[in-house]
Amino acid sequence: MILDIRGMKMQFGGLVAVDNLNLSLEQGELVGLIGPNGAGKTTVFNVITGVYAPTQGTITLEGRDITGMRPDLITRLGVARTFQNIRLFSRMSVIENILVSLHWRLGSSVFDAIFQNRKYRSEEASMRSRAMDLLARVNLDSVADLPAGSLPYGSQRRLEICRALATEPRLLLLDEPAAGMNPAESIELMKFIGRIRDEFGLTILLIEHQMRVVMGISERIVVLDHGIVISQGTPREVSRDPRVIAAYLGVEQHA
């Protein structure tokens, strides 16, 4: 079991964003997390990745308690994420965005970097080649030196995923990766996510509003409404669950 969330509760002042969430992920699973807007999905991501410490509950990663740990430490343990609103380092180049993800593994010290000695230079060279490899696998190597902010929207989304992959995670959390894409692009993304799951041996938890995407690739779906899990199961089971339909009633989706 890669991830085990027990009794997660997240309360902000008087508002309970997530209540009594229990969720576990097995190695290699691709699980979708859906629910109407404001259901608390991104909050779940934020708690898993340490941005918030939960009011109650525990989060265990491969047997290790990571509840409330600092986000960068959680990343180093193997959890990576993308963001709902793209958070690329826009003024930095495409390859630099990837290189940032490789920084924490750097063995060289600041002194090595300042003197640009052989140790540093060889590490830098190997980082660059790894970054270019990754970019090639997502077809972004041709734009490696362009500012990240100048890329078309779809490419930016792919870059964000690539950047997360560069941290060599075991668990990847994708927050609405298909947001703003047209149906054709979404299907491409669907295939892409499936492919990287297989190629990189990942476990993926996916938040998505576009039903075509999430129902198409998820093996299992968890439905969140007002912070509470109202249904879990295969895409088929969940799409027939009357509670889920009721929660979504009146909200048109690309179903």
């Binding site: 990343t75 180093r76 963001f83 958070r87 380092f89 930095m92 941290t167």
Partner: peptide, 19 residues
């Protein structure tokens, strides 16, 4: 690059493992 990433977007930098 780590410093610049902090300038660009602290939250994302932290999420990419930057202390």
């Amino acid at each position: 690059r780590a410093l610049k990433s902090i300038r660009e977007n602290e939250t994302a930098a932290q999420a990419m493992g930057i202390d």
